[in-house]
Design a binder for these strands. Structure first.
Length: 629
DNA sequence: GTAGGGTTAG
Protein backbone atom coordinates (compact mmCIF):
# COMPACT_ATOMS: atom_id res chain seq x y z
CA UNK A 1 0.00 0.00 0.00
CA UNK A 2 1.38 3.42 -0.94
CA UNK A 3 1.27 6.03 1.78
CA UNK A 4 0.43 9.66 1.15
CA UNK A 5 3.98 10.67 1.92
CA UNK A 6 5.63 8.10 -0.26
CA UNK A 7 3.44 9.22 -3.11
CA UNK A 8 4.85 12.71 -2.61
CA UNK A 9 8.32 11.19 -2.85
CA UNK A 10 7.17 9.47 -5.98
CA UNK A 11 6.15 12.77 -7.60
CA UNK A 12 9.60 14.04 -6.81
CA UNK A 13 11.07 11.12 -8.68
CA UNK A 14 8.65 11.49 -11.55
CA UNK A 15 10.07 14.98 -11.89
CA UNK A 16 13.52 13.46 -11.99
CA UNK A 17 12.41 10.91 -14.55
CA UNK A 18 11.14 13.66 -16.81
CA UNK A 19 14.28 15.62 -16.29
CA UNK A 20 16.52 12.72 -17.16
CA UNK A 21 14.46 11.90 -20.23
CA UNK A 22 14.60 15.54 -21.29
CA UNK A 23 18.27 15.85 -20.59
CA UNK A 24 19.09 13.12 -23.05
CA UNK A 25 17.61 15.11 -25.90
CA UNK A 26 17.84 18.71 -24.71
CA UNK A 27 20.50 19.04 -22.02
CA UNK A 28 20.34 22.81 -21.96
CA UNK A 29 16.69 23.06 -21.01
CA UNK A 30 17.14 20.76 -18.05
CA UNK A 31 19.83 22.87 -16.48
CA UNK A 32 17.64 25.91 -17.02
CA UNK A 33 14.99 24.09 -15.02
CA UNK A 34 17.51 23.90 -12.21
CA UNK A 35 17.05 20.18 -11.86
CA UNK A 36 20.53 19.09 -12.80
CA UNK A 37 22.11 16.85 -10.19
CA UNK A 38 25.51 16.95 -11.79
CA UNK A 39 28.17 19.27 -10.42
CA UNK A 40 29.14 20.38 -13.93
CA UNK A 41 27.27 20.88 -17.16
CA UNK A 42 28.77 17.64 -18.50
CA UNK A 43 26.19 14.84 -18.76
CA UNK A 44 26.14 12.57 -15.73
CA UNK A 45 26.99 9.26 -17.39
CA UNK A 46 30.10 10.68 -19.01
CA UNK A 47 31.00 12.36 -15.76
CA UNK A 48 30.78 9.07 -13.94
CA UNK A 49 32.93 7.39 -16.54
CA UNK A 50 35.55 10.08 -16.37
CA UNK A 51 35.84 10.23 -12.60
CA UNK A 52 35.46 6.67 -11.43
CA UNK A 53 38.72 5.38 -12.84
CA UNK A 54 40.98 8.23 -11.92
CA UNK A 55 41.86 9.11 -8.37
CA UNK A 56 44.65 11.56 -8.87
CA UNK A 57 42.89 14.65 -10.11
CA UNK A 58 44.00 15.92 -13.47
CA UNK A 59 47.38 14.21 -13.54
CA UNK A 60 47.77 11.53 -16.22
CA UNK A 61 47.86 7.96 -14.91
CA UNK A 62 51.28 6.37 -14.63
CA UNK A 63 51.88 3.08 -16.45
CA UNK A 64 51.56 1.26 -13.11
CA UNK A 65 48.18 2.77 -12.32
CA UNK A 66 46.99 1.80 -15.77
CA UNK A 67 47.60 -1.88 -15.01
CA UNK A 68 44.34 -3.72 -15.47
CA UNK A 69 45.32 -7.36 -15.12
CA UNK A 70 47.47 -9.52 -12.93
CA UNK A 71 49.25 -11.03 -15.96
CA UNK A 72 50.17 -7.59 -17.13
CA UNK A 73 51.60 -6.81 -13.67
CA UNK A 74 53.65 -10.01 -13.53
CA UNK A 75 55.03 -9.40 -17.05
CA UNK A 76 56.05 -5.89 -16.08
CA UNK A 77 57.69 -7.18 -12.89
CA UNK A 78 59.68 -9.81 -14.86
CA UNK A 79 60.78 -7.13 -17.28
CA UNK A 80 61.80 -4.80 -14.41
CA UNK A 81 63.97 -7.29 -12.58
CA UNK A 82 65.97 -8.00 -15.76
CA UNK A 83 66.97 -4.35 -16.13
CA UNK A 84 70.39 -3.16 -15.10
CA UNK A 85 70.54 -1.18 -13.05
CA UNK A 86 67.34 -2.19 -11.27
CA UNK A 87 64.53 0.40 -11.43
CA UNK A 88 64.14 2.54 -8.33
CA UNK A 89 62.31 1.31 -5.25
CA UNK A 90 59.63 3.86 -6.08
CA UNK A 91 58.82 2.13 -9.38
CA UNK A 92 58.53 -1.21 -7.60
CA UNK A 93 56.31 0.39 -4.96
CA UNK A 94 54.02 1.78 -7.64
CA UNK A 95 53.70 -1.65 -9.18
CA UNK A 96 52.94 -3.21 -5.79
CA UNK A 97 50.30 -0.60 -5.14
CA UNK A 98 48.67 -1.17 -8.52
CA UNK A 99 48.38 -4.91 -7.77
CA UNK A 100 46.98 -4.18 -4.31
CA UNK A 101 44.42 -1.78 -5.84
CA UNK A 102 43.31 -4.65 -8.11
CA UNK A 103 42.64 -6.52 -4.85
CA UNK A 104 45.14 -9.27 -5.73
CA UNK A 105 46.52 -9.22 -2.21
CA UNK A 106 48.30 -12.56 -2.11
CA UNK A 107 49.97 -11.86 -5.49
CA UNK A 108 51.03 -8.49 -4.15
CA UNK A 109 52.62 -10.18 -1.14
CA UNK A 110 54.32 -12.65 -3.45
CA UNK A 111 55.84 -9.79 -5.46
CA UNK A 112 56.93 -8.07 -2.24
CA UNK A 113 58.77 -11.23 -1.16
CA UNK A 114 60.37 -11.50 -4.62
CA UNK A 115 61.57 -7.91 -4.26
CA UNK A 116 63.20 -8.79 -0.95
CA UNK A 117 64.88 -11.83 -2.53
CA UNK A 118 66.42 -9.89 -5.41
CA UNK A 119 67.61 -7.18 -3.08
CA UNK A 120 65.25 -4.26 -3.72
CA UNK A 121 65.44 -2.31 -0.45
CA UNK A 122 62.28 -2.29 1.67
CA UNK A 123 60.87 1.17 2.30
CA UNK A 124 58.15 2.19 4.72
CA UNK A 125 55.93 2.62 1.66
CA UNK A 126 56.39 -0.91 0.31
CA UNK A 127 56.15 -2.34 3.82
CA UNK A 128 52.86 -0.54 4.42
CA UNK A 129 51.41 -1.86 1.18
CA UNK A 130 52.44 -5.41 2.11
CA UNK A 131 50.98 -5.06 5.61
CA UNK A 132 47.76 -3.70 4.12
CA UNK A 133 47.51 -6.80 1.93
CA UNK A 134 47.72 -9.04 5.02
CA UNK A 135 45.06 -6.97 6.77
CA UNK A 136 42.73 -6.97 3.76
CA UNK A 137 42.91 -10.76 3.73
CA UNK A 138 41.94 -10.82 7.44
CA UNK A 139 45.47 -11.93 8.32
CA UNK A 140 46.35 -9.01 10.55
CA UNK A 141 48.61 -11.22 12.68
CA UNK A 142 50.75 -11.78 9.58
CA UNK A 143 50.77 -8.00 9.19
CA UNK A 144 52.26 -7.67 12.67
CA UNK A 145 54.81 -10.40 11.85
CA UNK A 146 55.80 -8.51 8.72
CA UNK A 147 56.18 -5.38 10.81
CA UNK A 148 58.65 -7.30 13.01
CA UNK A 149 60.66 -8.47 9.99
CA UNK A 150 60.86 -4.97 8.56
CA UNK A 151 61.79 -3.53 11.94
CA UNK A 152 64.81 -5.82 11.98
CA UNK A 153 65.73 -4.35 8.56
CA UNK A 154 65.66 -0.91 10.19
CA UNK A 155 62.41 0.14 8.52
CA UNK A 156 60.56 2.17 11.13
CA UNK A 157 56.74 2.00 11.26
CA UNK A 158 54.95 5.30 10.96
CA UNK A 159 51.40 6.50 11.57
CA UNK A 160 50.27 4.93 8.24
CA UNK A 161 51.59 1.53 9.34
CA UNK A 162 49.69 1.66 12.61
CA UNK A 163 46.54 2.94 10.92
CA UNK A 164 46.63 -0.02 8.57
CA UNK A 165 47.10 -2.48 11.43
CA UNK A 166 44.38 -0.84 13.54
CA UNK A 167 42.04 -1.06 10.58
CA UNK A 168 42.95 -4.74 10.18
CA UNK A 169 42.12 -5.50 13.81
CA UNK A 170 38.79 -3.71 13.50
CA UNK A 171 38.05 -5.54 10.27
CA UNK A 172 38.50 -8.80 12.23
CA UNK A 173 36.24 -7.52 15.04
CA UNK A 174 39.20 -7.42 17.44
CA UNK A 175 38.12 -4.14 18.97
CA UNK A 176 39.73 -4.80 22.38
CA UNK A 177 43.14 -5.33 20.79
CA UNK A 178 42.61 -2.28 18.59
CA UNK A 179 41.86 -0.15 21.65
CA UNK A 180 44.88 -1.58 23.47
CA UNK A 181 47.18 -0.78 20.52
CA UNK A 182 45.72 2.72 20.18
CA UNK A 183 46.29 3.47 23.87
CA UNK A 184 49.78 1.98 23.75
CA UNK A 185 50.75 4.17 20.77
CA UNK A 186 49.69 7.28 22.69
CA UNK A 187 51.13 6.22 26.05
CA UNK A 188 54.55 5.25 24.68
CA UNK A 189 54.52 8.12 22.17
CA UNK A 190 55.19 5.63 19.35
CA UNK A 191 53.41 8.00 17.00
CA UNK A 192 51.11 10.98 17.23
CA UNK A 193 47.58 9.92 16.22
CA UNK A 194 46.38 11.80 13.17
CA UNK A 195 42.90 12.34 11.78
CA UNK A 196 42.94 8.94 10.02
CA UNK A 197 43.85 7.11 13.21
CA UNK A 198 41.10 8.80 15.23
CA UNK A 199 38.60 8.11 12.46
CA UNK A 200 39.65 4.47 12.30
CA UNK A 201 39.10 4.09 16.03
CA UNK A 202 35.76 5.88 15.73
CA UNK A 203 34.79 3.39 13.04
CA UNK A 204 35.69 0.49 15.36
CA UNK A 205 33.71 1.93 18.25
CA UNK A 206 30.68 2.49 16.02
CA UNK A 207 30.95 -1.03 14.65
CA UNK A 208 30.48 -2.31 18.19
CA UNK A 209 27.58 0.00 18.93
CA UNK A 210 29.56 2.39 21.11
CA UNK A 211 28.22 5.55 19.52
CA UNK A 212 28.60 7.56 22.71
CA UNK A 213 32.25 6.65 23.15
CA UNK A 214 32.82 7.39 19.47
CA UNK A 215 31.36 10.87 19.98
CA UNK A 216 33.61 11.20 23.04
CA UNK A 217 36.64 10.40 20.88
CA UNK A 218 35.47 12.96 18.33
CA UNK A 219 35.49 15.59 21.10
CA UNK A 220 38.86 14.37 22.39
CA UNK A 221 40.59 14.61 19.02
CA UNK A 222 39.28 18.14 18.64
CA UNK A 223 40.65 19.04 22.09
CA UNK A 224 44.02 17.54 21.20
CA UNK A 225 44.23 19.83 18.19
CA UNK A 226 43.31 17.27 15.54
CA UNK A 227 40.34 18.64 13.63
CA UNK A 228 37.70 15.99 12.87
CA UNK A 229 37.01 15.79 9.16
CA UNK A 230 34.07 14.60 7.11
CA UNK A 231 35.20 10.95 7.46
CA UNK A 232 34.96 11.10 11.25
CA UNK A 233 31.57 12.80 11.16
CA UNK A 234 30.17 10.55 8.43
CA UNK A 235 31.16 7.41 10.32
CA UNK A 236 29.26 8.44 13.45
CA UNK A 237 26.30 9.90 11.55
CA UNK A 238 25.98 6.63 9.62
CA UNK A 239 26.18 4.54 12.78
CA UNK A 240 23.51 6.65 14.51
CA UNK A 241 21.27 6.31 11.45
CA UNK A 242 21.71 2.53 11.44
CA UNK A 243 20.77 2.44 15.12
CA UNK A 244 17.62 4.46 14.36
CA UNK A 245 18.95 7.41 16.40
CA UNK A 246 18.11 9.85 13.65
CA UNK A 247 17.68 12.92 15.86
CA UNK A 248 21.20 12.47 17.24
CA UNK A 249 22.45 12.01 13.69
CA UNK A 250 20.90 15.32 12.64
CA UNK A 251 22.35 16.99 15.72
CA UNK A 252 25.82 15.89 14.65
CA UNK A 253 25.05 16.83 11.05
CA UNK A 254 24.16 20.37 12.13
CA UNK A 255 27.26 20.60 14.27
CA UNK A 256 29.40 19.49 11.34
CA UNK A 257 27.85 21.92 8.87
CA UNK A 258 27.14 25.00 10.97
CA UNK A 259 29.69 24.88 13.79
CA UNK A 260 32.60 23.28 11.95
CA UNK A 261 31.89 24.53 8.46
CA UNK A 262 32.37 21.09 6.91
CA UNK A 263 30.25 20.63 3.78
CA UNK A 264 28.23 17.39 3.78
CA UNK A 265 28.82 15.04 0.86
CA UNK A 266 26.86 12.31 -0.88
CA UNK A 267 27.80 9.81 1.84
CA UNK A 268 26.47 12.03 4.62
CA UNK A 269 23.18 12.42 2.77
CA UNK A 270 23.02 8.73 1.85
CA UNK A 271 23.37 7.71 5.49
CA UNK A 272 20.67 10.15 6.60
CA UNK A 273 18.35 9.02 3.81
CA UNK A 274 18.92 5.41 4.86
CA UNK A 275 18.01 6.27 8.47
CA UNK A 276 14.87 8.16 7.42
CA UNK A 277 13.75 5.40 5.02
CA UNK A 278 14.08 2.87 7.84
CA UNK A 279 11.68 4.99 9.90
CA UNK A 280 9.32 5.58 6.94
CA UNK A 281 9.84 9.34 7.26
CA UNK A 282 9.25 9.92 3.57
CA UNK A 283 8.63 13.67 3.72
CA UNK A 284 12.05 14.19 5.19
CA UNK A 285 13.65 11.85 2.63
CA UNK A 286 12.14 13.99 -0.08
CA UNK A 287 13.39 17.13 1.66
CA UNK A 288 16.93 15.78 1.82
CA UNK A 289 16.89 14.80 -1.85
CA UNK A 290 15.82 18.33 -2.68
CA UNK A 291 18.57 19.70 -0.44
CA UNK A 292 21.12 17.54 -2.28
CA UNK A 293 19.88 18.87 -5.57
CA UNK A 294 20.21 22.48 -4.33
CA UNK A 295 23.76 21.75 -3.20
CA UNK A 296 24.48 20.01 -6.51
CA UNK A 297 25.36 16.78 -4.73
CA UNK A 298 24.59 13.96 -7.11
CA UNK A 299 22.96 10.84 -5.56
CA UNK A 300 25.21 7.79 -5.79
CA UNK A 301 24.53 4.21 -6.73
CA UNK A 302 24.08 3.50 -3.04
CA UNK A 303 21.61 6.34 -2.58
CA UNK A 304 19.48 4.85 -5.33
CA UNK A 305 19.87 1.31 -3.96
CA UNK A 306 18.57 2.45 -0.59
CA UNK A 307 15.56 4.12 -2.19
CA UNK A 308 14.83 1.05 -4.32
CA UNK A 309 14.95 -1.16 -1.25
CA UNK A 310 12.84 1.22 0.83
CA UNK A 311 10.13 1.41 -1.83
CA UNK A 312 10.09 -2.39 -2.14
CA UNK A 313 9.78 -2.89 1.61
CA UNK A 314 6.93 -0.39 1.61
CA UNK A 315 5.17 -2.46 -1.02
CA UNK A 316 5.64 0.11 -3.78
CA UNK A 317 7.51 -2.02 -6.29
CA UNK A 318 6.35 0.21 -9.17
CA UNK A 319 8.07 3.19 -7.61
CA UNK A 320 11.19 1.13 -7.01
CA UNK A 321 11.20 0.26 -10.71
CA UNK A 322 10.89 3.96 -11.53
CA UNK A 323 14.02 4.62 -9.44
CA UNK A 324 15.85 1.84 -11.29
CA UNK A 325 14.86 3.49 -14.57
CA UNK A 326 16.50 6.69 -13.38
CA UNK A 327 19.64 4.75 -12.44
CA UNK A 328 19.78 3.25 -15.92
CA UNK A 329 19.22 6.66 -17.51
CA UNK A 330 22.21 7.88 -15.55
CA UNK A 331 24.33 5.14 -17.04
CA UNK A 332 24.49 3.11 -13.83
CA UNK A 333 24.24 -0.65 -14.12
CA UNK A 334 21.93 -2.07 -11.42
CA UNK A 335 23.55 -5.08 -9.79
CA UNK A 336 22.18 -8.18 -8.09
CA UNK A 337 21.71 -6.22 -4.85
CA UNK A 338 19.39 -3.79 -6.61
CA UNK A 339 17.37 -6.57 -8.21
CA UNK A 340 17.28 -8.56 -4.97
CA UNK A 341 15.32 -5.69 -3.43
CA UNK A 342 12.85 -5.80 -6.29
CA UNK A 343 12.53 -9.60 -6.22
CA UNK A 344 12.01 -9.46 -2.47
CA UNK A 345 9.39 -6.75 -2.97
CA UNK A 346 7.37 -9.02 -5.28
CA UNK A 347 7.83 -11.98 -2.92
CA UNK A 348 6.55 -9.97 0.05
CA UNK A 349 3.39 -9.25 -1.94
CA UNK A 350 3.03 -12.91 -2.87
CA UNK A 351 3.52 -12.00 -6.55
CA UNK A 352 5.61 -15.08 -7.14
CA UNK A 353 5.23 -15.30 -10.89
CA UNK A 354 6.43 -11.71 -11.26
CA UNK A 355 9.36 -12.51 -8.94
CA UNK A 356 10.28 -15.58 -10.98
CA UNK A 357 10.01 -13.70 -14.29
CA UNK A 358 12.25 -10.97 -12.91
CA UNK A 359 14.76 -13.58 -11.73
CA UNK A 360 14.89 -15.06 -15.24
CA UNK A 361 15.37 -11.66 -16.81
CA UNK A 362 18.10 -10.81 -14.29
CA UNK A 363 19.90 -14.04 -15.12
CA UNK A 364 19.58 -13.43 -18.85
CA UNK A 365 21.42 -10.16 -18.25
CA UNK A 366 24.35 -12.17 -16.94
CA UNK A 367 23.78 -11.38 -13.26
CA UNK A 368 24.22 -14.30 -10.90
CA UNK A 369 21.59 -14.70 -8.17
CA UNK A 370 23.02 -15.32 -4.72
CA UNK A 371 21.78 -16.92 -1.52
CA UNK A 372 19.87 -13.73 -0.67
CA UNK A 373 17.95 -13.85 -3.96
CA UNK A 374 16.91 -17.42 -3.24
CA UNK A 375 16.08 -16.61 0.38
CA UNK A 376 13.55 -14.04 -0.83
CA UNK A 377 11.98 -16.50 -3.26
CA UNK A 378 11.90 -19.26 -0.66
CA UNK A 379 10.28 -16.90 1.82
CA UNK A 380 7.75 -15.80 -0.79
CA UNK A 381 6.76 -19.37 -1.65
CA UNK A 382 6.52 -20.32 2.04
CA UNK A 383 4.43 -17.28 2.97
CA UNK A 384 2.06 -17.96 0.06
CA UNK A 385 1.88 -21.58 1.29
CA UNK A 386 3.23 -22.85 -2.05
CA UNK A 387 5.26 -25.44 -0.23
CA UNK A 388 6.05 -27.69 -3.20
CA UNK A 389 7.58 -24.75 -5.08
CA UNK A 390 9.50 -23.84 -1.92
CA UNK A 391 10.90 -27.35 -1.56
CA UNK A 392 11.82 -27.32 -5.24
CA UNK A 393 13.65 -24.04 -4.77
CA UNK A 394 15.42 -25.43 -1.71
CA UNK A 395 16.73 -28.41 -3.71
CA UNK A 396 17.65 -26.20 -6.65
CA UNK A 397 19.87 -24.05 -4.44
CA UNK A 398 21.60 -27.10 -3.00
CA UNK A 399 22.04 -28.55 -6.49
CA UNK A 400 23.63 -25.32 -7.70
CA UNK A 401 26.27 -25.76 -5.05
CA UNK A 402 25.21 -22.65 -3.16
CA UNK A 403 25.54 -23.27 0.53
CA UNK A 404 22.16 -22.72 2.19
CA UNK A 405 22.75 -20.46 5.19
CA UNK A 406 20.96 -20.51 8.53
CA UNK A 407 18.32 -18.02 7.36
CA UNK A 408 17.56 -20.25 4.38
CA UNK A 409 17.04 -23.27 6.65
CA UNK A 410 14.99 -21.19 9.10
CA UNK A 411 12.69 -20.02 6.30
CA UNK A 412 12.18 -23.54 4.96
CA UNK A 413 11.51 -24.97 8.43
CA UNK A 414 8.96 -22.24 9.11
CA UNK A 415 7.31 -22.94 5.75
CA UNK A 416 6.99 -26.66 6.52
CA UNK A 417 5.43 -25.92 9.91
CA UNK A 418 2.98 -23.46 8.35
CA UNK A 419 1.45 -26.26 6.28
CA UNK A 420 1.47 -28.66 9.21
CA UNK A 421 4.40 -30.81 8.05
CA UNK A 422 5.97 -30.97 11.51
CA UNK A 423 7.86 -34.20 10.86
CA UNK A 424 9.56 -32.80 7.75
CA UNK A 425 10.34 -29.58 9.60
CA UNK A 426 12.02 -31.44 12.47
CA UNK A 427 13.91 -33.62 10.01
CA UNK A 428 15.26 -30.51 8.26
CA UNK A 429 16.18 -29.09 11.65
CA UNK A 430 18.38 -32.17 12.23
CA UNK A 431 19.77 -32.00 8.70
CA UNK A 432 20.70 -28.36 9.13
CA UNK A 433 22.78 -29.23 12.18
CA UNK A 434 24.38 -32.14 10.33
CA UNK A 435 25.39 -29.64 7.62
CA UNK A 436 27.20 -27.60 10.24
CA UNK A 437 24.66 -24.81 10.68
CA UNK A 438 24.21 -24.05 14.37
CA UNK A 439 20.62 -23.12 15.19
CA UNK A 440 20.22 -19.69 16.77
CA UNK A 441 17.43 -18.13 18.85
CA UNK A 442 15.44 -17.45 15.67
CA UNK A 443 15.61 -21.12 14.69
CA UNK A 444 14.39 -22.21 18.10
CA UNK A 445 11.71 -19.55 18.04
CA UNK A 446 10.47 -20.92 14.70
CA UNK A 447 10.54 -24.54 15.94
CA UNK A 448 8.76 -23.75 19.22
CA UNK A 449 6.17 -21.60 17.47
CA UNK A 450 5.71 -24.25 14.78
CA UNK A 451 5.15 -27.02 17.32
CA UNK A 452 2.71 -24.93 19.35
CA UNK A 453 0.77 -23.86 16.24
CA UNK A 454 0.39 -27.54 15.42
CA UNK A 455 -0.96 -28.34 18.91
CA UNK A 456 2.28 -29.89 20.12
CA UNK A 457 2.79 -27.67 23.15
CA UNK A 458 4.23 -30.43 25.31
CA UNK A 459 6.82 -31.30 22.62
CA UNK A 460 7.74 -27.62 22.41
CA UNK A 461 8.20 -27.43 26.17
CA UNK A 462 10.34 -30.54 26.34
CA UNK A 463 12.56 -29.24 23.51
CA UNK A 464 12.83 -25.92 25.35
CA UNK A 465 13.94 -27.69 28.53
CA UNK A 466 16.25 -30.03 26.62
CA UNK A 467 18.25 -27.24 24.98
CA UNK A 468 20.91 -26.20 27.42
CA UNK A 469 21.50 -22.83 25.80
CA UNK A 470 21.24 -20.08 28.40
CA UNK A 471 20.71 -17.51 25.66
CA UNK A 472 17.54 -19.37 24.77
CA UNK A 473 16.46 -19.95 28.35
CA UNK A 474 16.73 -16.28 29.22
CA UNK A 475 15.17 -14.97 26.07
CA UNK A 476 11.92 -13.06 26.53
CA UNK A 477 11.02 -13.53 22.84
CA UNK A 478 11.16 -17.32 23.24
CA UNK A 479 9.03 -17.15 26.39
CA UNK A 480 6.47 -15.00 24.59
CA UNK A 481 6.29 -17.55 21.77
CA UNK A 482 5.69 -20.37 24.25
CA UNK A 483 3.12 -18.41 26.24
CA UNK A 484 1.31 -17.45 23.04
CA UNK A 485 1.49 -21.01 21.74
CA UNK A 486 0.18 -22.57 24.95
CA UNK A 487 -2.52 -19.89 25.18
CA UNK A 488 -3.72 -20.55 21.62
CA UNK A 489 -4.13 -24.22 22.59
CA UNK A 490 -6.10 -23.20 25.66
CA UNK A 491 -3.49 -24.60 28.06
CA UNK A 492 -3.84 -21.92 30.71
CA UNK A 493 -1.96 -23.89 33.39
CA UNK A 494 1.15 -23.84 31.16
CA UNK A 495 0.64 -20.16 30.34
CA UNK A 496 0.53 -19.24 34.04
CA UNK A 497 3.50 -21.47 34.89
CA UNK A 498 5.65 -19.87 32.16
CA UNK A 499 4.66 -16.36 33.22
CA UNK A 500 5.58 -17.23 36.80
CA UNK A 501 8.95 -18.58 35.61
CA UNK A 502 9.72 -15.16 34.11
CA UNK A 503 9.21 -13.56 37.47
CA UNK A 504 11.48 -16.14 39.17
CA UNK A 505 14.23 -15.58 36.59
CA UNK A 506 13.91 -11.83 36.81
CA UNK A 507 13.10 -11.58 33.09
CA UNK A 508 11.08 -8.50 32.14
CA UNK A 509 7.93 -9.25 30.12
CA UNK A 510 7.57 -7.04 27.04
CA UNK A 511 4.48 -5.88 25.18
CA UNK A 512 4.36 -9.15 23.20
CA UNK A 513 4.48 -11.24 26.39
CA UNK A 514 1.60 -9.31 27.94
CA UNK A 515 -0.38 -9.46 24.70
CA UNK A 516 0.16 -13.23 24.52
CA UNK A 517 -1.14 -13.55 28.12
CA UNK A 518 -4.19 -11.42 27.29
CA UNK A 519 -4.87 -13.51 24.17
CA UNK A 520 -4.61 -16.66 26.31
CA UNK A 521 -7.06 -15.35 28.91
CA UNK A 522 -9.52 -14.18 26.25
CA UNK A 523 -9.36 -17.53 24.49
CA UNK A 524 -10.82 -19.32 27.53
CA UNK A 525 -13.21 -16.49 28.43
CA UNK A 526 -11.27 -15.13 31.41
CA UNK A 527 -12.08 -11.55 30.44
CA UNK A 528 -11.65 -10.05 33.88
CA UNK A 529 -8.09 -11.37 34.10
CA UNK A 530 -7.41 -10.16 30.56
CA UNK A 531 -8.65 -6.67 31.44
CA UNK A 532 -6.66 -6.58 34.69
CA UNK A 533 -3.43 -7.44 32.93
CA UNK A 534 -4.22 -4.93 30.18
CA UNK A 535 -4.48 -2.20 32.82
CA UNK A 536 -1.47 -3.46 34.76
CA UNK A 537 0.94 -3.58 31.82
CA UNK A 538 0.74 0.18 31.44
CA UNK A 539 1.42 0.64 35.15
CA UNK A 540 4.48 -1.61 34.78
CA UNK A 541 5.97 0.69 32.18
CA UNK A 542 4.91 -1.35 29.17
CA UNK A 543 1.80 0.32 27.69
CA UNK A 544 -0.45 -1.75 25.38
CA UNK A 545 0.24 -1.25 21.68
CA UNK A 546 -2.05 -1.47 18.67
CA UNK A 547 -1.94 -5.29 18.73
CA UNK A 548 -2.77 -5.47 22.46
CA UNK A 549 -5.87 -3.33 21.84
CA UNK A 550 -7.01 -5.49 18.91
CA UNK A 551 -6.48 -8.68 20.93
CA UNK A 552 -8.50 -7.47 23.91
CA UNK A 553 -11.23 -6.05 21.68
CA UNK A 554 -11.36 -9.29 19.74
CA UNK A 555 -11.69 -11.19 23.02
CA UNK A 556 -14.54 -8.96 24.19
CA UNK A 557 -16.45 -9.36 20.92
CA UNK A 558 -15.91 -13.10 20.70
CA UNK A 559 -17.17 -13.55 24.26
CA UNK A 560 -20.17 -11.25 23.78
CA UNK A 561 -18.78 -8.80 26.33
CA UNK A 562 -19.89 -5.46 24.94
CA UNK A 563 -19.60 -3.06 27.91
CA UNK A 564 -16.05 -1.86 27.25
CA UNK A 565 -16.05 -1.97 23.44
CA UNK A 566 -16.85 1.69 22.90
CA UNK A 567 -14.30 2.94 25.39
CA UNK A 568 -11.58 0.75 23.81
CA UNK A 569 -12.45 2.06 20.33
CA UNK A 570 -12.27 5.65 21.63
CA UNK A 571 -8.88 5.05 23.22
CA UNK A 572 -7.61 3.51 19.96
CA UNK A 573 -8.83 6.55 18.06
CA UNK A 574 -6.94 8.90 20.38
CA UNK A 575 -3.77 6.89 19.83
CA UNK A 576 -4.25 6.81 16.02
CA UNK A 577 -4.34 3.01 16.14
CA UNK A 578 -6.08 0.90 13.51
CA UNK A 579 -8.29 -2.18 13.52
CA UNK A 580 -7.08 -5.44 12.00
CA UNK A 581 -9.18 -7.32 9.47
CA UNK A 582 -10.46 -10.04 11.79
CA UNK A 583 -11.51 -7.64 14.57
CA UNK A 584 -13.20 -5.41 12.01
CA UNK A 585 -15.09 -8.39 10.64
CA UNK A 586 -16.22 -9.38 14.15
CA UNK A 587 -17.43 -5.83 14.78
CA UNK A 588 -19.37 -5.99 11.55
CA UNK A 589 -21.02 -9.26 12.63
CA UNK A 590 -21.98 -7.90 16.03
CA UNK A 591 -23.44 -4.71 14.56
CA UNK A 592 -25.35 -6.67 11.92
CA UNK A 593 -26.70 -8.92 14.68
CA UNK A 594 -27.85 -5.88 16.61
CA UNK A 595 -25.60 -6.60 19.61
CA UNK A 596 -23.71 -3.36 19.08
CA UNK A 597 -25.05 0.08 18.34
CA UNK A 598 -24.76 1.33 14.74
CA UNK A 599 -23.62 4.66 16.16
CA UNK A 600 -20.19 3.05 16.60
CA UNK A 601 -19.73 3.05 12.82
CA UNK A 602 -18.43 6.63 12.83
CA UNK A 603 -15.83 5.71 15.44
CA UNK A 604 -14.85 2.56 13.55
CA UNK A 605 -14.51 4.61 10.37
CA UNK A 606 -11.66 6.52 12.01
CA UNK A 607 -9.81 3.28 12.74
CA UNK A 608 -9.69 1.80 9.25
CA UNK A 609 -8.45 3.05 5.87
CA UNK A 610 -11.24 4.65 3.83
CA UNK A 611 -11.20 1.97 1.10
CA UNK A 612 -11.73 -0.75 3.69
CA UNK A 613 -14.53 1.19 5.36
CA UNK A 614 -16.34 1.70 2.04
CA UNK A 615 -16.27 -2.00 1.29
CA UNK A 616 -17.24 -2.67 4.90
CA UNK A 617 -20.33 -0.45 4.85
CA UNK A 618 -21.09 -1.61 1.31
CA UNK A 619 -21.03 -5.23 2.44
CA UNK A 620 -23.12 -4.32 5.45
CA UNK A 621 -25.78 -2.68 3.28
CA UNK A 622 -25.80 -5.74 1.05
CA UNK A 623 -26.03 -8.01 4.09
CA UNK A 624 -28.86 -5.92 5.55
CA UNK A 625 -30.62 -6.12 2.21
CA UNK A 626 -30.26 -9.86 2.14
CA UNK A 627 -31.64 -10.09 5.66
CA UNK A 628 -34.57 -7.90 4.62
CA UNK A 629 -33.59 -5.09 6.99
C1' DG B 1 57.76 10.04 -7.15
C1' DT B 2 55.43 5.83 -3.97
C1' DA B 3 51.60 3.98 1.68
C1' DG B 4 46.63 4.48 5.72
C1' DG B 5 40.18 5.97 7.08
C1' DG B 6 33.62 6.28 5.53
C1' DT B 7 27.86 4.56 2.51
C1' DT B 8 23.98 -0.52 -0.44
C1' DA B 9 20.15 -6.22 0.54
C1' DG B 10 17.13 -11.12 3.62
Amino acid sequence: MMTRSSSRLHSFFKLKCNFITNSVTTPLSSSRLGLDFSPHSTSLPSLLHSTSFSNNGDRPLSRYQKLTSLDHAFNLFDEMILRTPLPSVVKFTQLLNAVAKLKHFSSCLHLFKQMCVIGVPVSEYSMNIAIRCCCQMSRTNDGFALLGCCFRRAVVPDVCTFNTLLDGLIREDRIVQAERLFKKLIKHKLCEPDVVMYSTMIKGLCKFGNNDIAIGLLRLMDERGCKPDIYAYNTIIDSLCKDKMIEDAFKLFNEMVFAKGIQPDVITYTSLIYGLCNLCRWDEVSKLLKEMEDLRISPSFQTFSILVDAFCKEGSVDEAEAVIDIMVERGEVPNIVTYNSLINGYCLQGEMSKAKTLLDSVMSRGLIPDVITYNSLLNGYCKSLKIEEAIHMFHEVTRKGLNPDMIFYNTMIQGLFSVGRCGDACQLFDEMQAQGQTPNEYTYGIILDGLCSNHQVEEALSLFHLVGDSKLKNNIVVYSILIDGAGKCGKLDIVRALFHELHVKGLQPDVRTYTAMIRGFCRVGLLREAKNLFLKMGERGCPPDNVSYCVLLHGYLKNQHFDDVEILLQQMGRRSYSLDASTLSLLKDRIAAGSLDRGLLKLIGMLVPKELMDSFTGREKKLNGECGL
